[in-house]
Simulated scan of single mutants.
Amino acid sequence: MKTKEQQEAEFRSFAIAQRESLRRYAYLLCGDWYEADDIVQKALTKMFAAWRRVEPGGAPAYVRKIVTNVYISHRRLGWVRRERSSADLPVQRLERPQEAVDVRLEVVAALNRLPARQRATLVLRYWEQLSVDETATAMGCSTGTVKSQSAKGLRKLKDLLTDPVIPARV
């Protein structure tokens, strides 16, 4: 049996190794770096409380599931829906070297407009490259739900990205 100090050292190593990856994942879910930091902090706190019960090989998937659940809970709280930065403004389509960055910002803005579960499903499936089964495990739902949320989310994302950009008034 491991001592409390050994368990804390193992968790600390795990948290340091996973933090940046979890932060990027949380950002893709919520679209805000500060909120992503809050989500990761809450998830790691919950993970620490359960650390002695977690299988070492399953820890990354388990903490990703916690991040997903914390994100979805944040979305259910009204106070999280606050004013967003100017990154959510429509991006004009111009030919310039910065275009790839602009497209990425446009995709993140469109992702931010999706419902929480659809967004989480798309990020897990296509950014984190999880299988349908792994996504279902991470989200705590059935594979059918993952498939339907993926289809609905992709359809909505396509609609959001193909809408004409509203020209700015001068």
Rank of each mutant, 00 (worst) to 15 (best):
R104A: 06
A109P: 06
L124H: 03
L130K: 01
L105N: 12
E106S: 14
A109R: 11
T143W: 09
V146S: 02
L124G: 01
S150P: 05
S148T: 15
L105S: 11
A136Y: 00
P115A: 14
A110M: 00
L105G: 11
K152L: 15
E134D: 15
A110R: 00
D102W: 08
A100E: 09
E134Y: 02
A109Y: 02
S148R: 14
A151C: 04
V132G: 07
Y126V: 04
D133N: 00
A100V: 06
L124P: 04
T145R: 15
T121G: 07
D133S: 10
A120W: 02
Q149K: 14
T121N: 09
G144A: 12
Q118N: 14
L111I: 01
A138Y: 03
V107A: 04
Q118W: 12
R125H: 04
P115Y: 00
A136R: 03
R104G: 01
T121V: 11
G144W: 03
R119H: 05
Y126Q: 09
L130E: 04
Q129R: 13
R113P: 00
S148M: 14
E128A: 13
V146E: 05
R119Q: 07
K152C: 15
E128Y: 06
K147Q: 13
L124R: 05
A136H: 03
E106A: 08
A151I: 15
A138T: 04
C141P: 02
V123E: 03
C141F: 06
A120Q: 03
R104L: 01
L111G: 03
L122H: 07
R113Y: 07
A120E: 06
T137E: 09
C141N: 12
E128V: 13
T121C: 12
A136I: 08
Q129G: 00
L105C: 07
R117L: 10
S150C: 12
S148E: 10
R104M: 10
Q149Y: 08
R125M: 14
K152T: 11
A100F: 01
